[in-house]
Amino acid sequence: MKSHPTTQTMKPATAAKKLGVYLPATPAEFQEGVLSRAELNQLQAEPPEWLRELRRNGPHPRPVVAARLGVSIAGLARGGVTEPLTTDQIEALRQERPEWLEKEQATQAEVRKEAERLKQRDTERAAGPGPRD
């Protein structure tokens, strides 16, 4: 007996996260329905105007805000940014360069630098011992 493959669906919150958009800013029909994997792929391949507009101008969810500012999500919280921001608001923060933003960007740069150092160390260890003197 063959079973028919079921269509994988996801809740609107999951789909919004995968699309990188803030769920409350999406159209009501998106928020109230469920999406299949094929529908999500279609939205990614050929985004409708509402999706292009949200990606371009926001409001953006915290992961997108953090990425655009070059900080962590925790860094946003430490800086007092707890609400979604629009592209204009993100740009204004970049121009203003508040102290918390500069500090968090420096912290994030250090985290990336350390991650790269550890990656290099692990690569060297995996290659095995080098020639002995």
Score class of each variant (00 low, 15 high):
K2Q: 14
S3F: 14
S3W: 14
S3T: 13
H4P: 08
P5C: 07
T7Y: 06
M10Y: 11
K11H: 12
P12F: 04
A15H: 01
A16M: 02
A16D: 01
K17W: 10
P24M: 04
P24W: 10
P27N: 15
P27T: 15
P27F: 15
E29H: 15
E32R: 00
G33K: 13
G33N: 08
L35R: 14
S36A: 08
R37W: 02
A38G: 05
L40P: 09
Q44R: 15
A45S: 14
E46H: 15
E46Q: 15
E46D: 12
P47Q: 03
P47R: 00
P48A: 10
W50V: 10
L51M: 06
L54M: 09
R55F: 07
V64A: 05
V64R: 07
V65F: 09
A66C: 00
G75P: 00
T82K: 13
P84S: 04
T86S: 14
T86I: 06
Q89T: 02
I90Y: 00
R94M: 04
E96D: 07
E99L: 04
E102H: 05
E102P: 01
T107H: 11
T107D: 12
E110Q: 14
V111E: 08
V111C: 03
R112F: 04
R112V: 08
E114V: 11
A115N: 15
E116P: 12
R117G: 09
Q120W: 12
R121A: 13
D122C: 08
T123D: 10
T123M: 06
T123V: 08
E124S: 09
E124W: 13
E124P: 07
A126Q: 12
G130R: 06
